[in-house]
Simulated scan of single mutants.
Amino acid sequence: MKNYGTATEAAISSVVTACERYGARSIIAMAGVPGTGKSFAASIAAQRFSGEPLLVREIQFHQSFSYEEFIEGLRIDNTSGVSVVPGVFLDWNQRALDDPDRRYVLLIEEFTRANLSSVLGELMTYLEHRDRPFISVYSRRPIYVAKNLTIVATYNPTDRTAIEMDGALIRRLRIVRFRPSGEQLSEMLGNKVPDNVKLKLQEIFSKCAQRFGEDYEHLMPFGHGVFAEVQAEAPDLHLLWKERIEHLLRRPLVEPHPFTDVIEELYPWRASPDFKM
């Protein structure tokens, strides 16, 4: 099993532990701003928890994702008739029911982008009470949620849809927080850049955490993952600023991000593609 470094392994292990303790009753939800390694850690943790990559199914929610796609819906068949077709969840749930000795995982990216109350439907109750069946809307058959099926989800807590989550759903989540991490940044970059460059990048996160306190975790405009593609100090860090970071801080007709002045002061590569520490 590959080791990703102390801080990264700790993040992965926190998800695996949550799955083991609470996955039979709750959705294991990983919350963090973009670039905090949620998707990476979720994928690794899901595979470790299940013990087999083929027992993990990954999907992504979006604004038009529906109950019919997730639970079950009506489709026109080859005879031009209408038939009931299981959605992603019922299909994966049935595989888990047929194979009770192994752990199955459904990994949902961008969890809060969908209309969750509508998409999840009866699961809002029956994920928690798996000894009781629910009656599906279209096939009208009793369905049990498999005890060996765990749902893992990722989301950005600052998305409007996440802020609007109701209490009934939040009660069914086990939320594992993912913060921007200087330690994970160092492990991610490895020897691709000199140590003094890594220290300077880490300083961006540490100074923002000191300056903005509790707001740091939820309002930091990017996580350490924004530097994942950096291969060399120059010109990569300058191009990253011009092509990505600057646009996260300053947008036309919108007030600058509240962290902008601090980040600009701590990012010396923004001025020139030839700058080196």
Rank of each mutant, 00 (worst) to 15 (best):
D101A: 09
R102K: 12
R102V: 13
R103C: 07
Y104S: 07
Y104Q: 02
L106N: 01
E109M: 04
E110A: 08
F111S: 04
T112C: 15
R113K: 15
R113A: 14
N115H: 13
S118V: 02
S118K: 10
L120N: 10
L120G: 09
L120P: 12
E122K: 00
E122G: 01
E122H: 04
L123D: 04
M124V: 15
Y126T: 09
R130Y: 07
D131E: 11
R132D: 14
F134N: 01
I135W: 05
I135A: 02
S136N: 06
V137Q: 10
V137D: 03
V137G: 01
S139D: 05
R141Q: 14
A146R: 12
K147S: 14
N148A: 06
T150N: 10
T150E: 13
V152L: 12
V152H: 02
A153K: 15
N156M: 14
P157A: 09
D159S: 08
D159V: 03
D159P: 10
T161I: 00
M165W: 10
D166Q: 03
A168H: 06
L169Y: 09
R172V: 09
L173D: 01
L173R: 02
R177F: 00
R179G: 02
R179D: 15
P180L: 05
P180C: 07
P180K: 05
Q184Y: 00
L185W: 04
L189D: 06
N191Y: 02
P194T: 07
N196T: 12
K198F: 06
K198W: 09
L201F: 07
F205K: 11
S206F: 03
K207H: 09
K207Y: 11
F212M: 01
E214G: 00
E217W: 01
E217C: 01
